[in-house]
Amino acid sequence: MSEMSNISSERNLLPPKSDLEANQTTPVEVVSSSELTTEEWSDRIFLERQVERAFYAAAKALKALRDRRLYRSTHATFEDYCRSRFGFTHRHVNYLIAGSLVVDNLMGTNGSQIENSDKTGTNGSQVENLDEMGTNGSQIENSDETGTNGSQILPTSERQVRPLVPLEPEQQRQAWQKAVELAGGKIPSGRIVQDIVDKIRERTKVPNPYRLGEVCTLLPKDNPELKGRSGCWGVITHVGDYSCTLETWDAEYTVKIEHLKSLELLDNDCQFMQQLCARLRRLHEIENRDIAVDWLCLGLGKQPLPYLSPLQEKLLADVEQEYGLR
């Protein structure tokens, strides 16, 4: 009897069955929400902007490295530095920097103003009309610090702005706006931009007065890519409708025809200068060359004369022999 009494007493200590059922853990189905939180929206906008501005940021960094000569502790020239550090050719670097100047023009900045793009989307980084794409199809409202008004669709790659480089600033803005319209309000491809530029050029076509093999000097004027190159001579290796490619002793430049001045040499003199340019370039291509080699090449590369003095020829020949080029 005592055992039965104890069992009955223990049963009485248990909670009612209804209470047990109520306290049972019920499995909860976790549903992944497609909606973004405010913080997630902010992160998305920030990351999208980094992607959109990747080429622009790289170009600005390269320009600063070049202008401040921050490569000088390890490399004799900026061209060597870019090739060694980044695997970039001189032409590619020129394309990037020239493209960034076009973007500056499209944004209405002078290149020295930096857009404040923080993750909160405030303080000069406001986003207009967020939709399913996160930034209204890449339309970003720029801050007053950039000197722009309203929302803009800006280039995201150098290829999109390359056709705009030879145009005047106002023509660049007009051509880009037209390309955006043709792209349905989205970022246009380089092909669309090129088509617009071709139409503009057809309306204002001026014959290119230069020819292959002609020797010209560079006129920097308002082209920052030619800074410090005034008076440098070179040989034209390509003639386009509105530009030429000029090969100097240390680089290659594709410039508008107004940045060139012909030396108006006779054919025999042009041939001499072509050969001299080739000799200087071979010296420049030598790795671990003495800095004195660049001094010699720089001096001759700014001397627009179709001959060398006896001493100049002797110095050049001695250097060539020193490096096994003769």
Rank of each mutant, 00 (worst) to 15 (best):
Y242D: 13
L316F: 03
P220Q: 04
E258K: 08
V197T: 02
P220V: 03
R44E: 09
P209V: 05
V206N: 13
C232Q: 15
T25E: 14
N223Q: 06
D104F: 03
T38W: 11
R44H: 09
Q171W: 01
G324W: 03
Q303A: 04
N208K: 06
R83C: 09
Q303Y: 03
T122D: 15
D43A: 13
K302L: 08
L280C: 13
S100M: 09
E322C: 11
G213D: 13
A278Y: 02
D144V: 12
S117Y: 01
G111Q: 07
A292G: 15
V239P: 06
E52M: 07
D118I: 01
R91S: 09
Q160D: 02
H92Q: 14
A183F: 02
V180F: 01
A175R: 03
N123L: 11
Q172S: 03
L246R: 02
T77W: 11
T109E: 08
G111C: 09
M133V: 01
L36A: 10
M4G: 14
N6H: 06
L226S: 10
L265C: 09
L260M: 06
R279N: 13
T122Y: 05
S151A: 13
L265N: 09
Q174C: 02
F46N: 14
N268E: 14
E247F: 01
R66Y: 09
P166C: 06
P15T: 01
K119S: 08
E29Y: 07
H90R: 06
I200M: 11
F86H: 11
L14D: 07
V319Q: 10
Q139D: 05
R68G: 15
N6G: 02
C244Y: 00
Q113T: 12
N123C: 06
T146D: 12
T89P: 10
R85K: 13
A58E: 13
Y56D: 11
P163H: 00
L263W: 00
S8C: 06
T237M: 05
I187E: 12
T37A: 13
I192T: 08
R201D: 13
V206R: 14
L265M: 12
N142G: 07
D222H: 04
N105M: 03
C82N: 10
R203D: 15
V206W: 01
R201I: 08
P163R: 00
T109G: 09
G228I: 10
H259L: 02
A61M: 09
I196F: 00
A183K: 02
R173S: 07
S262D: 12
V30K: 06
V127C: 05
Q172E: 09
G240I: 03
C232R: 10
V127D: 07
E202T: 07
H92W: 11
Y323N: 12
E10V: 02
